[in-house]
C-alpha cells in the first residue's frame, strides 16, 4: 500500500518535475506547508485567542490576529525565498567504490537574495547556504559510493524555512546527477601469461603484484612525466621535483584478461582495476579483455579512463561508452 503510494508519488513527481541539468524553481516545482514549528506557532496563537475571548480583551485579539496575519504573509515570503532560484548541476569526478562521491551543484540567484537554502539528501545530512542577490554559490553534496557502476543519487531535496521557520517550502529536483563509481582496486598478482605473446619462457614479461622490485628509484622530473608519479614527500622536504621511476617491463605489452582470472566477478574486476591503475602510472601500454569487450593495447590517461569505464560498466545493461538511458 505504502509502496504503491510511493511509486505513484514518484511517477507524479517525474511528470511534474522532469530531470534537467539546469532548473529554475517556480510554482510548478515548489510545495509549501507549515512546519512543526509552524504547528507550535498555531497552537500558541490558539491559546492567545482563548485568552482574548475569555478576557474579552481587544488588544489580545489584535496581537493574535497580527501574528496570524504574519503567518499568512510568511507563506509568500517563504515561497519567495525559493522561487527564482536556479539550480545547475556541475561536473562530477568518478570515484572508486568505498570513496565519497561528490556532486557539485551551483545555486544562482536571478534577482533577489535567497537566504538559508538547505540542499541535499535527508539521509546524508543537508547543507545550508545563502545565495546573495544576482550571484551564485556552490554546494558540494557528498554521498558514499558503495557499489560499482553509475551512481545516481536521484532527486535532491531543496528546502527553505526562511524567514520565520514556521513554514517549509521544498522541492525534489532531479538535476540528472550521476557519476561513475569504479571498482575498488584490490592488490594482487596477475597470472602468468598475462603477456601478450604466448611464449611462457619470457620471464621478463611477468609482472609482479608487489611491484616493489619494479621501483627503481627517483630521478629528476621531466616535463613529459606524469604528475601522478611526482614524489611529493621529497618535494616537501625541499629536494626538488623528483619522480618515482619504475622499470619499464621490457619488450612485451601486457594483456589484462578477465577470463584468465579465477575468482568471482567483482574480485576479478577489482584486481583488473588495480592493474589498470598500476600500469597507467608506469605509463606502460596494456590491453584489456572483458567478455564482450576488447580494448586494444595503448597507454595514457584516456586509455586508462576507457578501461576503467569498461570495468565499471561490466555486466550492466548500459551500452559502452554512451550515456545512460
Amino acid at each position: 500500500m505504502i509502496q504503491g503510494l510511493q511509486s505513484r508519488w514518484n511517477r507524479w513527481l517525474a511528470r511534474r518535475i522532469p530531470p534537467a541539468k539546469n532548473l529554475r524553481l517556480s510554482q510548478r516545482q515548489i510545495f509549501i506547508i507549515p512546519s512543526r514549528v509552524g504547528a507550535m506557532f498555531i497552537l500558541a496563537l490558539i491559546l492567545m485567542l482563548l485568552a482574548a475571548i475569555n478576557y474579552q480583551n481587544s488588544l489580545a485579539y489584535g496581537l493574535t490576529f497580527l501574528l496570524g496575519s504574519v503567518f499568512i504573509v510568511a507563506i509568500l515570503h517563504t515561497y519567495l525565498n525559493l522561487s527564482g532560484l536556479m539550480l545547475k548541476s556541475g561536473p562530477a569526478e568518478p570515484v572508486f567504490v568505498g570513496e565519497h562521491a561528490r556532486f557539485n551543484v551551483r545555486l544562482e540567484s536571478e534577482r533577489r537574495a535567497h537566504e538559508a537554502i538547505v540542499l541535499g539528501w535527508p539521509s546524508q545530512g543537508m547543507l545550508q547556504l545563502d545565495v546573495a542577490a544576482l550571484s551564485g554559490s556552490d554546494a558540494e553534496l557528498g554521498l558514499p559510493a558503495t557499489s560499482r557502476g553509475w551512481l545516481r543519487p536521484g532527486r535532491v531535496r531543496v528546502e527553505s524555512r526562511f524567514p520565520l521557520g514556521i513554514l517549509v517550502a521544498w522541492s525534489w529536483v532531479d538535476l540528472d546527477l550521476q557519476l561513475l563509481v569504479y571498482p575498488r582496486p584490490v592488490e594482487g598478482d596477475l597470472p602468468i601469461g598475462a603477456g601478450l605473446g604466448d611464449d611462457p619462457q619470457e620471464q621478463g614479461a611477468r609482472a609482479h603484484g608487489s611491484g616493489a622490485d619494479d621501483f627503481q628509484g627517483l630521478r629528476a622530473y621531466q616535463p613529459s612525466d606524469s604528475k601522478r608519479r611526482l614524489h611529493w614527500k621529497a618535494y616537501s622536504r625541499g629536494l626538488g621535483l623528483l619522480v618515482k621511476d619504475f622499470t619499464a617491463l621490457s619488450g612485451r605489452d601486457i594483456s589484462l584478461d578477465f577470463s584468465a582470472l579465477a575468482s568471482d566477478t567483482e574480485a576479478r574486476l577489482s584486481l583488473l582495476c588495480y592493474w589498470v591503475l598500476q600500469l597507467s602510472e608506469r605509463q606502460q601500454p596494456f590491453s584489456l579483455a572483458l567478455p564482450g569487450v576488447y580494448i586494444g593495447v595503448d597507454s595514457g590517461e584516456q586509455h586508462r579512463d576507457r578501461c576503467l569505464r569498461a570495468l565499471t560498466l561490466f555486466g550492466s545493461s548500459f551500452a559502452e561508452p554512451g550515456a545512460p538511458a
Partner: peptide, 30 residues
C-alpha cells in the same frame, strides 16, 4: 528590518480579521 516589514505587511490582514472575526462571550471565567 525584515521583521518590521513582515509586521507591516501583516497589518492590513490583521485589521480585516479584527473587524470581521466574530466575537463571542467568554468561554469560561478567569
Amino acid at each position: 528590518k525584515l521583521a518590521g516589514s513582515l509586521l507591516l505587511q501583516a497589518l492590513p490582514l490583521m485589521l480585516l480579521l479584527f473587524l470581521f472575526f466574530p466575537r463571542m462571550g467568554p468561554l469560561w471565567s478567569l
